Computed example of a mutant assay.
Amino acid sequence: MRKDTKEHLLETGLDLLLEHGYNDLGVQALLSASDVPKGSFYHHFRSKQDFALAVVDRYMRQVHAGLDDCLNDTRRPPLDRVRRFFELSREKYGREGYRGCLLGNLGQELSAVNDAFRYKIEWCFGEITARLAVCLEEARLHGDLPKETDVHHMADLLLDCWEGAALRSRLRRDPAPLTAMLDFYFRTAA
């Protein structure tokens, strides 16, 4: 049985937004790629912006699931759990052709011209870093980080470094910048 139309549009849209970005994605191209009639699109979404923001929400559900899988794996030490999340993300980027992070891509493309995306993406990054900070705090309490470590700052810095490395990885179509960033960060952090 075919997926729910809205979910099908969101799934197709995620792929197209990663590939083409927001400005180069037309609604007609989305409809052609998803084989959905125009009326169905506007039944579910008020506009292209409303649609793309819903794609961001769908993407965040995937990110949260990945964070849950890694950060809640108490068989691993806390720093290993944090690193594992990023290693799995790096592998996913490779499987997808090094198109990068949807949040970083849209943030670079739209944050200077669209406040709705700027606020949404910054909120999403805040959600990610808050989750990372909880695990980093566990590492600090276990003595894996210095007791004076500001785990929120450390989580922000980790995500900032990751997004920069994701851009370089996308430009080169190569995981090396992501790997080098993780190696440097975790070598100097612990």
Score class of each variant (00 low, 15 high):
Pro78Thr: 08
Pro37Thr: 13
Gln62Arg: 07
Pro78Ile: 02
Gly94Glu: 15
Asp69Gly: 13
Leu79Trp: 02
Arg90Val: 07
Val63Arg: 04
Gly100Ala: 14
Gly66Ala: 09
Phe51Gln: 10
Asp80Cys: 01
Arg81Ala: 04
Glu96Ser: 13
Phe45Gly: 02
Tyr59Gln: 13
Arg75His: 08
Phe85Gln: 03
Lys38Cys: 07
Pro78Glu: 12
Tyr93Lys: 12
Gly66Arg: 08
Phe41Lys: 00
Cys70Leu: 01
Cys70Gly: 01
Arg84Phe: 10
Arg46Cys: 01
Ser40Pro: 01
Tyr59Met: 07
Lys48Glu: 05
Ala52His: 06
Ser47Gln: 10
Phe86Asp: 03
Pro78His: 07
Phe45Lys: 00
Val55Cys: 02
Cys70Glu: 07
Asp69Cys: 08
Leu67Tyr: 04
Arg95Gln: 11
Arg58Trp: 05
Pro77Ile: 08
His64Pro: 00
His43Glu: 09
Leu79Arg: 03
His43Ser: 07
Arg46Asp: 13
Val82Lys: 02
Arg84Ala: 11
Arg75Thr: 13
Val55Asn: 01
Val36Gln: 12
Pro78Cys: 08
Arg90Lys: 15
Val36Phe: 00
Ser47Glu: 10
Leu53Pro: 07
Val56Tyr: 00
Phe45Arg: 04
Tyr93Ala: 12
Glu87Pro: 03
Tyr93Trp: 04
Pro77His: 05
Thr74His: 12
Thr74Pro: 00
Ala65Trp: 08
Ala65Phe: 08
Pro77Tyr: 07
Gly66Glu: 09
Tyr98His: 15
Leu67Asn: 00
Asp80Asn: 10
Leu79Tyr: 01
Lys38Gln: 13
Asn72Asp: 15
Asp50Leu: 14
Val55Pro: 04
Gly94Pro: 06
Gly94Asn: 02
Val82Ser: 04
Phe86Trp: 10
Cys70Val: 01
Asn72Ala: 13
Glu96Leu: 12
Phe51Cys: 09
Ser47Thr: 05
Arg84Glu: 15
Pro78Arg: 10
Tyr93Asp: 13
Arg84Lys: 07
Gly94Met: 05
Gly66Leu: 02
Phe45Ile: 10
Asn72Val: 05
Lys92Ile: 01
Gln49Val: 10
Gly94Arg: 06
Val63Ser: 09
Leu79His: 01
Val36Leu: 03
Arg84Gly: 11
Arg81Leu: 08
Phe41Asn: 00
Tyr59Pro: 13
Ala65Tyr: 09
Arg58Phe: 09
Gly100Cys: 06
Phe45Tyr: 09
Asp68Ile: 11
Phe86Ser: 04
Arg58Gln: 14
Pro77Leu: 10
Pro77Thr: 05
Leu67Asp: 00
Phe51Thr: 05
Phe86Tyr: 15
Arg99Leu: 13
Phe85Glu: 03
Arg76Val: 03
Lys38Tyr: 09
Met60Leu: 14
Ser89Ala: 14
Arg46His: 10
Glu87Thr: 07
Arg61His: 06
Phe41Cys: 05
Glu91Ile: 02
Leu67Ser: 02
Thr74Glu: 14
Arg75Gly: 12
Ser47Phe: 06
Asp80Met: 02
Leu67Arg: 01
Asp80Gln: 13
Ser40Tyr: 11
His43Asp: 00
Val56Asn: 03
Arg75Leu: 13
Pro77Gln: 11
Lys48Phe: 04
Gly97Ile: 08
Lys48Tyr: 11
